[in-house]
Write a protein that binds this DNA or RNA. Structure first.
Lengths: 336, 336
DNA sequence: TTGTATGCGTTATCAC
DNA sequence: GTGATAACGCATACAA
């Protein structure tokens, strides 16, 4: 196919060893030959075959990125962060969307390992795949995870502290004078959704507000469910005055439901959500939400993974806990 | 690192050739040994090294996907289509975000070729890179492009006919009784933006409506500019009654601008946009826009590319033209 | 039915 | 300064 090191050697009338030396900027080549080969590289358009390089070095400079679904607005931000930093450090990314499907997650691992990626980034895995992870750990295979689990893992993780984040959101509503606070959950099979629920409940408890079962409705992180569940909430006799919605996407649906039923935000009902995706500031009124540093998350993931790749010894398992921060816009009303 | 074909051979007490045969389901192995090796594969957890495989087969089953920015909501949909179909056919994807930056685009090519990808998908390149493409074409390197250029290229393309699409959008406004029609353009350096402008102008001409320079304002495909440019439009004495906005994202900004200035959609001003990203139906009122089949676009791209990869001979250059279709929601008012 | 030998493009070891 | 040569893991032409 392309021009190889061998072609260069023939053309320059030297051995491939010499060529390899100048390509890798190693000493032991006269300035003259070095120059000659450099010129040839340009003229002949040589591009190193990193596949062959990977075979001998046992390193491909490839990283596997396993995510649930790139169409979820959370992930492009994160992925871009990973990619930018990874490229900066000389690595490329192979993506794998799993839809949080166990079988796909398993396949993703096999495939990526087969492609000899130097490490893999796992985000929001639906199961712990403990066995696989243990096996990888034994052979010192670099992995980082992003999750909302505070428990120590055998691999470094970036943790989004969803419990505290949900707590903050709820607390904000309370401080704004709300007492009747509802919650639209995420897909409850996900740990993140369960953590939000815990944070919400903890906060109610700490502020001695009764937990009303009818104000807790189940969404699944998709707009559709935000729409439906908000309608559910609004149909009730005794409505909440504020709702904590598990993500911005569902808030979009909720906005629509509220408008359709003739209510207005924040006068009739206040909304706080989670994530702060890019379009949320363009809702009317602007969505008050918990900002999660998605791009930065990506940067950190790349750093953590590549650090592992470089330190074969793998001394520290340093977890990073990422805090979400409140972004006040116009969707929460101060009561009384 | 992992267990290799050699390990299997040693364990099974056969040659690596035999092992290779059963791994690739080739004939010429007794059922007994075949079975024995198959068992060993499971027990020892063998995972083929596709890097080594790629070296000898001269095929990596890797595809390069070059896009401007995965954070633009258009691309996750498309990328997911590519990935799903590619995986189905046994290929994985390396992503490369270029931000439409020439230097990055050039680097992307070098990197991807160096990774020995079997082909590359180019979407919305900012320049023609004719020289590179010609060189690749000479060595029969598989490439597909997605663009809005109807001109024949040396490589197969999926073409989004933006001129006709903008024409349709404008025509729809006219048929709804509008005569005073504005346009917020995309970043005018992009061909797509220019094509929208052409379609818009063509339509005005065909319906004998005068083109008013002050109703043509320049955006850049980002919400921010939709917001600003819509304000610009609304500040005018003689306002348009309807505006064709070059993409949904800018329409989000425009909605906000309109609300802030105390106008309502569609009573005071009608809006039609382009793309139909997922959240657009949740705007209030729902955004009327031109739907572009982004996921399907991805599927087609993967098919076209892999077809090329398989037919080394590369008989046909079949372009595919994708039409956008109108999605009527609530942002355009029928006049009179 | 099975095995030997060679090569893919590159780097590393060792010799000259 | 330079060059043979082996090796990485795998597939395959050719022998046996």
């Amino acid at each position: 196919m392309g021009v190889t090191i061998k072609d260069l050697a023939r053309e320059a009338e030297v051995s491939i060893t010499t060529v390899s030396r100048v390509l890798n900027n190693k000493p032991g080549v006269s300035a003259a030959t070095r120059e000659k080969i450099r010129r040839l590289v340009k003229i002949m358009g040589y591009n190193p075959n990193s596949i062959a390089r990977g075979l001998v070095l046992n390193q491909t400079f490839l990283i596997g990125l396993i995510i649930p679904d790139i169409r979820n607005p959370f992930f492009p931000e994160m992925a871009r962060g990973v990619e930018d930093r990874a490229r900066e450090l000389g690595y490329s990314l192979i993506y794998y969307n799993t839809d949080k499907n166990r079988e796909e997650e398993r396949k993703a691992f096999d495939l990526l390992l087969s492609k000899q990626v130097d490490g893999v980034i796992l985000s929001f895995f639906s199961w712990s795949i403990k066995k696989t992870l243990l096996k990888l750990n034994k052979i010192q295979y670099p992995v980082v995870r992003v999750d909302s689990n505070l428990k120590k893992s055998i691999y470094p993780s970036v943790i989004i502290d969803s419990i505290s984040s949900a707590y903050q959101a709820t607390e904000y509503l309370i401080k704004m004078g709300h007492q009747k606070i509802g919650h639209i959950t995420g897909r409850i099979t996900s740990r993140t959704a369960r953590h939000y629920l815990i944070g919400y409940k903890n906060c109610l408890r700490d502020y001695q507000l009764a937990f009303h079962k009818q104000w807790l409705v189940r969404g699944d992180f998709e707009h559709q469910s935000g729409y439906q569940q908000m309608k559910e909430l609004l149909r009730q006799q005794d409505k909440p005055t504020a709702v904590f919605i598990a993500n911005d996407i569902m808030a979009f649906g909720a906005y629509k439901a509220i408008a359709e039923m003739g209510y207005t935000i924040p006068d009739d009902i206040s909304i706080i959500a989670h994530d702060d995706i890019e379009l949320s500031s363009y809702l009317i009124p602007g969505l008050t939400t918990m900002y999660t540093p998605k791009y930065r998350l990506g940067i950190i993931l790349a750093d953590l993974l590549i650090k592992q790749i470089k330190n074969k010894n793998r001394a520290e398992i340093d977890d990073v806990v990422l805090k979400s921060t409140l972004v006040e816009r116009g969707s929460v009303k101060r009561l009384r």
